[in-house]
């Protein structure tokens, strides 16, 4: 085995690090659009309209069955043709990051809709009934009573989906995007791919703390959102009666 060059790893690490902004950009926008699409899909799926239900159901099933990488290629190679022939829009100058965001927004739309649907259903419907019967309209009942509890139920899954996106997004390098992985790949190729171990360890050291941090943050968030925490907060500083 060849010698491990620690200094190359350090060099790569610091050269790759600035490209984290690219990674964070597509993670952020994919999640943003993904959640919007997911909310709409969940709403359709929970509605009584059979057509909306079927459409959202089919969308979720299709997305679940397609590997991210296949879908990324479909969007990357298929979308420009579709836009040109049907809408006369030329997508030649569109940056690769746009395709990445489109791909993952559509994928996350399906995944997050299931998170939102199950979170919504986890809140006992009786509370909604009680809310509308004290005179709230459905929207207020949702906002004041159902949503905060559904949010709590969704926190662990939301954390998971963000971490999933962070890691799965690395596929973007394959369509030539210079995110952290793309940059590492490029740096290694400049040196005749001689430093693969150094490159991927540097990348691991970038991804790892980030994922750990997210995991910890979401665990803390879940705790702070729990009824048990609220109870503790209320009773701290005064005598607790059994």
């Amino acid at each position: 085995m060849r010698e491990f060059h620690f200094e190359i790893m350090v060099e790569f690490y610091f050269k790759i690090l600035p490209y984290l902004t690219i990674t964070i950009t597509y993670v952020f926008f994919s999640l943003l659009f993904g959640f919007l699409l997911g909310a709409l899909t969940a709403y359709f799926r929970l509605s009584k309209n059979p057509v909306l239900k079927a459409i959202s159901g089919a969308y979720i099933t299709v997305m679940r069955c397609v590997p991210s990488i296949v879908f990324l290629f479909l969007v990357y190679y298929g979308l420009p043709g579709l836009m040109r022939t049907h809408f006369g829009i030329d997508m030649n100058d569109v940056d690769a990051i746009v395709y990445v965001i489109i791909t993952f927004s559509i994928m996350l739309g399906a995944y997050t809709s299931e998170i939102m649907r199950s979170a919504y259903l986890s809140v006992d419907h009786g509370q909604f009934e009680a809310a509308v019967l004290v005179g709230m309209d459905s929207l207020t009942a949702f906002r004041r009573i159902i949503f905060p509890q559904a949010l709590h139920a969704a926190i662990p899954n939301v954390g998971n989906i963000i971490i999933f996106m962070l890691k799965e997004g690395a596929l973007a390098y394959i369509i030539g995007l210079q995110d952290v992985l793309g940059r590492g790949y490029y740096l290694n190729s400049l040196k005749a791919n001689a430093y693969s171990m150094e490159t991927y360890l540097a990348l691991t050291l970038i991804y790892w703390p980030l994922t750990l941090l997210l995991e910890k943050a979401f665990r803390e968030l879940e705790k702070r959102h729990s009824i048990a925490f609220l109870i503790q907060k209320k009773s701290s500083g005064k005598e607790v009666k059994a």
């Binding site: 009786g126 509370q127 809310a131 004290v134 709230m136 009573i145």
Partner: peptide, 24 residues
Amino acid sequence: FQSYNLFANKTAFENVYEGLVSGR
């Protein structure tokens, strides 16, 4: 209700208060 259906994320006081403020 038979199964009370109190708002689980609200205290006893807030359960009553919420109805008055948001409902009425």
